[in-house]
Design a protein around this nucleic acid. Sequence first.
DNA 1: CGGCGCCTTGAACCAAGTCAAGCTCTGTGG
DNA 2: CCACAGAGCTTGACTTGGTTCAAGGCGCCG
Lengths: 227, 227
Amino acid sequence: MLKQATATKSAPQAHSTQYGAVFAARRTDANPLDILGASMPFVRNVEIYGEDDPADYFYKVVSGMVRTCKILSDGRRQINAFYGPGEFFGLEVNGTHTLSAEAVEDTIVLVIKRSTIVTLANSDSQVARQLWLIAARELQRMQDRALLLVKSARERVAGFLLEMASRREDDAVELPMSRQDIADHLGLTIETVSRTLTQLTNAAAIALPSARHIVLRNRDALALLNA
Amino acid sequence: MLKQATATKSAPQAHSTQYGAVFAARRTDANPLDILGASMPFVRNVEIYGEDDPADYFYKVVSGMVRTCKILSDGRRQINAFYGPGEFFGLEVNGTHTLSAEAVEDTIVLVIKRSTIVTLANSDSQVARQLWLIAARELQRMQDRALLLVKSARERVAGFLLEMASRREDDAVELPMSRQDIADHLGLTIETVSRTLTQLTNAAAIALPSARHIVLRNRDALALLNA
DNA sequence: CGGCGCCTTGAACCAAGTCAAGCTCTGTGG
DNA sequence: CCACAGAGCTTGACTTGGTTCAAGGCGCCG
């Protein structure tokens, strides 16, 4: 079992007041969840909220990538999910976060007050429905992850790459996260992740022009990887 | 990787009409979700609903135990969750089940029409809130499971026992499910589950008067099991 | 140019899987 | 009431996939 956890720069005052509504919200989208709230930038490895923090806000990634994670008592770190542009995170039913959230790379997120959402959902059933969809996606995501975690290292890595690639049309995927992030997400060590990627390269399933730039050469082979 | 899946007796017509409202619903509880719907019995290993079935009903365990599971393409079976008395299962946002549900032992469940719930939730905000709580519990359950799945066999088994025990006050736990069920839930083999249980017995953390009857002798030791 | 993250590779080790008996219940029919 | 059959559980010996420990390489920025 590994026992490390990448140090995270603490955001002195994550986003209490000083950012306020400095950044104008976009209005391009018809979705009510998009036209309220304020954009906020977070630099690489900065915490957006912490475990057990009050969940007064709800978030949507505008650009960049966010990871949600948990530090275990023995120091291991578990990354529950990665969120890319357009994805929501930080929704909690009771008022407390159960995970922390950090910017994987320099990231802009839309921050929406929880109370605003709750009020809106009470009057607008479309908003309420959308919240259900977000929650359902979250559950599905966790189920898929649990499914991955019972498989072999090759299947886990292949599944992870396919998930990352599913967000874009292209076969070329830019991975903003480190090998350690991937390892902590898949329940493997960085060495195993690295080795598995070179295996997949040798098997011509992927190409690896540089460490964080991956090209899917054979999606079917990845999908069928059960050995 | 293992490759077996316990055969499940198929329920010819799970619960379309023939049981209807034969069993009277209880009215002891003030909860509106309890006073509607009909009790239905399912015998051991019978399917309550299947993967990809339309999710027209929502369920609550009255007595017995239910497992929800998924069969992987290679024949492995994954058990997502066990539900005991008082617990809800089968709630879906879109109209289709993503898992199948089966009775672990002879079980009675309360079956509630989805359309009833939806209507009720629209008028009664208490019901809507309760649905959120159920969904949140479900998500928490999956997160906890994902957490277990990255740990060692000893931690997984210990965590499983604690989860089962948390449902009752007593330290004596009756496990209605087979070793295979436990293995498929924890992503282990039955041999490893069996060996780990004898290890825990030798370490005086538990006692094992009979295969399915477990007594927690040292909860703290189980909780601290990180090696 | 040098130093430092980050990534890869190698070799040895170990936890869990696999294969193969054997044991223990439990229910069933003689 | 006992004997037997079969499913379910345990145990042992061996194999293997993934971790651990330890170098070394690559790229980036000062």
